[in-house]
Design a protein around this nucleic acid. Structure first.
Lengths: 248, 248
DNA sequence: CGGAGCATTGAGGCCACTCAATCCAGGTGG
DNA sequence: CCACCTGGATTGAGTGGCCTCAATGCTCCG
């Protein structure tokens, strides 16, 4: 079955994302696209794709929509520990460990592809750059985790929210999901609060502070950054941890 | 050159640590030990082994001593994002990315082994379980990072400090570095504050609260946990993220 | 028209912060 | 041996950032 032009546009974020990490051969791209198109799935908003404690036996790659990784405490406190954007992989290597240590939920309706472990392992065994690209993605995720630790531990509310907005913007850029100085922001303030470790009330007030400072506009699920450099300064944001530029 | 019995005891934490993740063949253990013994190094306390922004071209495995991964903000605020204990690897796969996104510093005098990238890659290419063990270590580190995110974002000071003590204790156990209900705690309260995102003053008061509750004794660089279950309850600690038990 | 979900605002309280002083142990030089 | 210094632990006082509780507004939708 040939991969049509239409299909190509569907898998584009994935190919762009991985190519940002390692140059993929046409052959590797094609076999990946083929595998992706075989396992297409949809999920509504607010669904758990995987829950903490589940064993994992497949890899999920996001084609469209936003997801989050989160953990909860017994009493219900929730912390979003990372977002997952189109082109990114949910758990490329999670099957090496016994069970999931966290949950993954959709924040919007999502289209993704589910690839069984054996299929995935065959795929990456066939091409070294493909294997390395997936590993790099895992490593970049680790780096993002570390940045979130300093964000939660050492930045004050205003810096923290500003930093999150900067990160979202810079992560959406390489997959072509920003439009000028705007991007969609399809999540609730509750989600943003859980990502920044703040209460909803205080998150709301912090967003208003950013608005009052003229740094951002946030309405109708769209974030507009008036002055990206100024926002980055306010956030103490330095993008190197995202590894947007390659070594070689 | 044969590996002597004395040498064996030096590399023991490494072998124990990796075996907890994947069963290593005698052959794999031996060639790893050999490589480790070739690259032995020492460092004093308070030294940076690698700094943010550095390119990486070797792997460091810790034989004894404590280290930490940390990030800083321009104005000096510091967040320790993880500890590194004997038997653990500093950056098994960091060379796949361009540069370090964080720094690694010693918290005590340290003995470690530095293995050049090419040597390391040859080593892991020779044995699948060895390669998987190192990858698992990287993945467990990611899981720890995520737990730290909820620790910093959603636990209050008392829970946070209690959680850190539980984690340290449970991570030292598999490498044989606990003694009954005690372990060494060779770091300053400043370090503990930077790991928990608290000020030194408040960390000190929180430790005293744990002491007053009869949960711990902390003096002369030794931590004694009077009632581990009670401490875990106070911390909302659940060890599954440490992957102490294997799938297979 | 009523309800649900989300954003916003007000009021009051506490947790963790900063600044600053004190204590203590270990190391060093006179 | 002691005075001194330094790094770390501890304590006190006062403040403010972020919290909780609770009410209100708004929009969408059945």
């Amino acid at each position: 079955m040939p991969v049509s032009t239409l299909d190509r546009s569907v898998t584009e974020p994935i190919i762009r994302r991985l190519n940002a990490l390692r140059t993929l051969s046409a052959q590797a791209s094609a076999s990946l696209e083929h595998a992706v198109l075989e396992g297409m799935q949809r999920a509504g908003s607010g669904e758990d794709l995987i829950s903490e404690g589940d064993p994992v036996d497949s890899v999920r790659i996001v084609l469209s929509g936003w997801l989050c990784r989160y953990k909860t405490l017994e009493d219900g406190r929730r912390q979003i520990v990372n977002f997952i954007f189109p082109g990114e992989t949910c758990d490329a290597h999670a099957f090496l460990l016994a069970v999931m240590d966290h949950s993954i939920a959709t924040l919007t309706p999502v289209v993704y592809s589910e690839i069984k472990r054996a299929r995935f392992e065959t795929l990456v065994a066939s091409d070294r750059s493909l294997a390395e690209a997936f590993w790099c993605e895992t490593l970049v995720n680790s780096a993002i985790q570390r940045e979130w630790a300093i964000n939660l531990g050492r930045r004050v509310a205003l810096e923290r929210v500003a930093h999150l907005f900067c990160e979202i913007f810079e992560r959406l850029r390489p997959v072509g999901m920003i439009d000028g100085n705007s991007c969609i922001m399809p999540v609730t303030q509750m989600d943003l609060a859980d990502a920044t470790g703040l209460s909803v009330v205080h998150l709301n007030r912090t967003v208003q502070e950013l608005r009052a400072a003229g740094l951002i506009v946030l309405r109708e699920r769209t974030l507009t950054i008036n002055d990206l450099d100024a926002l980055k300064d306010a956030a103490l944001f330095s993008p190197s941890y995202l590894q947007l530029y390659r070594r070689k």
